[in-house]
Simulated scan of single mutants.
Amino acid sequence: MIYGTWESSVQKLPKHLGALQKYNPGTIVEWQHKARDTSTGAYVIGYVFWAFKPCIEGFQHCHNLISVDGTHLYTKYKHKMLIAAAMDGNQQVLHLAFAIIDEESLLSWKWFLRQLSRHIIRGRRGICLISDRHAGITRAVRECPDFMPPNGVHRYCLRHVCSNFNSKYKNVVLKDLCWRVGSEYQIRKFNRIMEEIKSQSLEAFQWLDRIDKEKWTASHDGGWRCEILTINMSKCINGVLKGARRLPLTAIAEMTFQRSVHYFRESHAQKVCAVFMINAASMVKDCYDIMSYKNTYSKSFEPVHSEDYWDVPGFELVHDPTIRISSRPGRNQTTRIHKEMDWAQRSARQQAQQRNSSTQSDVPVPGSQD
C-alpha cells in the first residue's frame, strides 16, 4: 500500500508531525492520549492538533473571525477531523488549524477551542467564532473566555439554521423567508419579514424567535461577523481535503501540509496591482490594507527532509480498537447525518441522471430504421 496500513499510519503519525515541526519551526502539535495499551505500552490515540507557523502568523493580518467545522473521516475507525479557518482582507480563505478526534463532543470541542485560544488567538481580543449549532460546540464555547463577551462572541452559521428550520417545517416558502430574515441588515426589514413568517406559521415564528437573534441574524449581530453569514470558509477546506478523508491519518496530515505549501506559493506569486490615487487607508480596516494582505502570506514553508533524518518521538502510538468500524463487504458507508441540504443535492443528481438517460435514448442506434 502506498500509504501503509491504518495501524502503521497511526504509529508513524508522531514521527511525521515531529518532522513537520523540526523543519518548520513554530509549527504547533498538541497531543491528548488515552490510556496506555497494556500489551505494548504504547499510547492509545485520543486527540491531536496541528497548526503551521505561516498560517498562525498570517492570521494576525486577517479579519477577527474564525470559522470552525467538523467532518467525518471514511476510515476503518470512527475518527473525525476538526477544521478552523479565517478570511484575509482579499476575502480569501486561510486555514488555521486541524485536529483528529474520536468523536464530536463537549470534551473534544472544548479541547480544540482551547488549542485555538492558546496557539492561534494568543490573547487577541474581539474574535468572532462562527459554527453550526452542534451541542458540543455551543456548550464548549461557554467555557472558553476568548469566545465570550467582552473578549469575543459566538455566532451561528445561517445556512445551518435554515437547514434545521427546513428539516422541521419542510416548506420552501418558509425556508426562503428564514434566509431572508437572517441575512437582512436592517432591523425594520427584519421585523417585517418575521411578521410575514408569523402569518405563515406561528409555530415556525416561535421556533426562530427562541434562538438568540444576535447569534444568527445580520441585523442584530452588531458588526462582529464582517458580513460572513456561514461557515463556508471551513467547508471550502473540507471540500479540498475530501479525497484525503479516505486515507490513513499520516497521509491526511501530509495532505494538509502539501495543500498549505501550494496555497502560500500561489499567494506569493500574486502581484500587487496599482491603486487609485486616493488615500482610502483611513476609511477601511487594517486587514484590507495591501501591506496587511502581503503580510498574511509573508511567511514560508520549509521542505521536509528525507525520513532518514527524522527524529524518533518519545512515545509510541496505536489505534483505539473500541472505535473501529465493523468490517462489511462493499464500499464504506458514510456515517454523517444527512440533512435537507444533502437531499437537495441528491435530487439534483437524480434529475441530471434522468436527463442524461432520456438524451441517450433519443440517440439513433446505427443500422436502425426510423
Rank of each mutant, 00 (worst) to 15 (best):
I137C: 09
T250C: 14
R336A: 11
L73S: 06
H160I: 08
P149Q: 15
P14T: 00
L116H: 05
I100H: 07
K110G: 11
I211F: 04
E195V: 04
Q351C: 14
L96V: 09
M277V: 13
Q258T: 15
S326Y: 04
K12Y: 05
D320P: 09
N279C: 13
A204G: 08
N64A: 07
M148W: 08
K189Y: 02
G314R: 07
S199R: 06
V10L: 07
L241F: 10
Y43K: 02
L208R: 04
Y74Q: 10
R192H: 08
L208H: 03
N191H: 07
T75C: 14
T75L: 12
G223K: 05
Q270L: 13
I325L: 13
T296Y: 02
F147T: 14
L202F: 02
M87N: 13
I45M: 08
D212A: 11
L13G: 01
A140L: 09
T27L: 00
V93D: 13
P150A: 12
D289L: 14
H305G: 05
K271Q: 13
I323P: 07
M1Y: 09
Q354T: 11
L107Y: 06
D37Q: 03
Q32M: 04
S201N: 07
D102A: 08
A84E: 10
T250Y: 06
D102C: 10
N24D: 01
A99S: 15
G89L: 08
E195K: 02
S357W: 06
R246A: 14
N191I: 03
E227D: 14
C55R: 00
N171Q: 06
P150I: 12
G243N: 15
G46H: 02
L65S: 02
R336T: 10
I278K: 14
D37P: 00
I237H: 05
V173Q: 08
M341H: 05
R259M: 12
S163T: 11
W310R: 05
N151L: 15
P150Y: 12
W6T: 12
W109Y: 13
L17P: 00
A344V: 14
E184S: 09
A35P: 01
I252C: 11
C128G: 06
S167D: 15
Y3D: 08
P54D: 01
H72Y: 15
H95R: 03
G4S: 04
A86K: 03
I127D: 05
E143R: 15
R142S: 15
S201I: 00
V29T: 02
L129T: 06
A251V: 10
E7R: 08
T138K: 14
G126A: 10
W111A: 14
S358H: 09
K339S: 13
I211Q: 13
Q333M: 10
V365H: 09
I325Q: 11
K53W: 02
L96H: 05
G123E: 04
N232M: 02
F205A: 00
Q60H: 01
E195F: 00
N332C: 11
K22Y: 02
D132V: 07
